[in-house]
């Protein structure tokens, strides 16, 4: 009986190897194009790039009337004309995705001289971490898991990844806003995002006639929900950045975290100094944690004036050309420490 079963199990194993080969030959590339196009883009980009730039939408968002339609990575490249800065952008991406992209770099054939990864303060908040966009982002990584491609394809069909639906994600987000305590070194009446948001929503801003300024209050609420958190090592996104830093040190590749600008000016005027305090405290946490060994942080948190943000009624890292230029110049200054000889003043 054992021989009988062994022959069949062996036969099944051989069949699976054969089918995996057929899948790779005829279907794998098609599936990658459909589900993981950014991975394919990265596999191509790394062959040509001196500096790889991993970003979310901040690098591809322009104002309609921008006179300079160059992305942050392209503007950075102006400072290093002899080098090639190539960006791989994916809307709503974050360190949790970028860390998997790093595994796609062939360090023997295409080791880049440096990698820039956008460090987006909002990507640590509950709204981004529990966003519905997380499902397609996670889905895009399944086909490149370290298993045989045929097995990965099966995992994709089984939705064997973080594929929670929108309702579940929203529930988790609301729970976090309700339960996570906010800590200040001074007395502050709101202990959670929910309390703070609730107070702001119920007449945080008033018009001259004493009525509620709903538009302004709503915007202030967005700012609270986006930036009211205390960063620590338990934040899942911090753990993702830790992984990236560990990868950089292990593989001796310089990684630059491009801490993107947030609208600190509006945060101050709409919500107040307490929110700005949290934003700056979190910035300091990140600077301290990641400015070491093979990692460096380009601090842009408050370099872009409020009016230079493309979205005036939402919290984003989308900038007009001046904003992008400020950030690129700041980033270039950091890169200059490594590429002193290639650096050339651009503007």
């Amino acid at each position: 009986m054992i021989k009988y079963i062994s022959i069949r199990v062996f036969g099944l194993g051989v069949l699976l190897v054969l089918l995996n080969y057929l899948y790779v030959l005829f279907f794998y590339q098609r599936d990658l194009r459909e589900k993981s196009d950014k991975i394919l883009e990265l596999r191509e980009s790394q062959k040509k790039a001196d500096i790889l730039y991993f970003a979310e939408s901040s690098n591809v968002n322009f104002r309609e009337n921008d006179s300079i339609k160059l992305s942050i990575s392209e503007l950075t490249n102006l400072f290093f004309p002899k080098l090639k800065v190539i960006a791989v952008n994916n809307v709503a991406s974050h360190a949790g995705i970028f860390k998997y992209w790093l595994n796609e770099i062939d360090l023997i054939k295409n080791k880049p001289k440096a990698i820039v990864v956008t460090l987006n303060l909002r990507s640590f908040d509950a709204a981004w971490r529990h966003s519905k966009l997380e499902t397609p982002l996670r889905e895009s990584l399944v086909l490149v898991e370290p298993y045989p491609p045929l097995f990965n394809r099966f995992l994709l069909a089984l939705q064997a990844f973080d594929s929670k639906d929108e309702t579940e994600r929203e529930k988790e987000m609301l729970k976090e806003w309700k339960e996570t305590q906010l800590h200040f070194p001074f007395e502050f009446k709101y202990k959670t995002v929910r309390e703070w948001d609730g107070a702001m929503a119920n007449g945080g801003h008033l018009n001259a006639d004493g009525s509620w300024d709903i538009k302004k209050s709503e915007l202030a609420c967005h700012y609270i929900k986006a930036y009211a958190f205390n960063l620590n090592e338990h934040n899942p996104r911090v753990r993702d950045f830790d992984d990236i830093a560990a990868w950089a040190n292990e593989n001796k590749v310089n990684v630059y975290f491009n801490l993107l600008a947030e609208n600190v000016e509006y945060a101050d005027s709409l919500v107040g100094k307490e929110l700005v305090f949290l934003m700056k405290q979190n910035r300091d946490f990140l600077m301290k944690r990641y400015n070491r060994n093979y990692c460096k942080v380009a601090d842009n948190l408050d370099v872009v004036p409020g009016k230079e943000f493309t979205d005036q009624d939402w919290t984003t890292e989308h900038y007009g050309y001046r904003g992008r230029m400020y950030i690129a110049r700041n980033l270039a200054a950091q890169l200059k420490t490594q590429f002193e000889n290639e650096y050339q003043k651009a503007y």
């Binding site: 045929l150 394809r153 994709l156 069909a157």
Partner: peptide, 14 residues
């Protein structure tokens, strides 16, 4: 078996 396994693993709905 080969057809079913291949169909299931490589061609099922995503």
């Amino acid at each position: 078996y080969a057809v079913l396994i291949f169909g299931l693993m490589a061609l099922s709905g995503t």
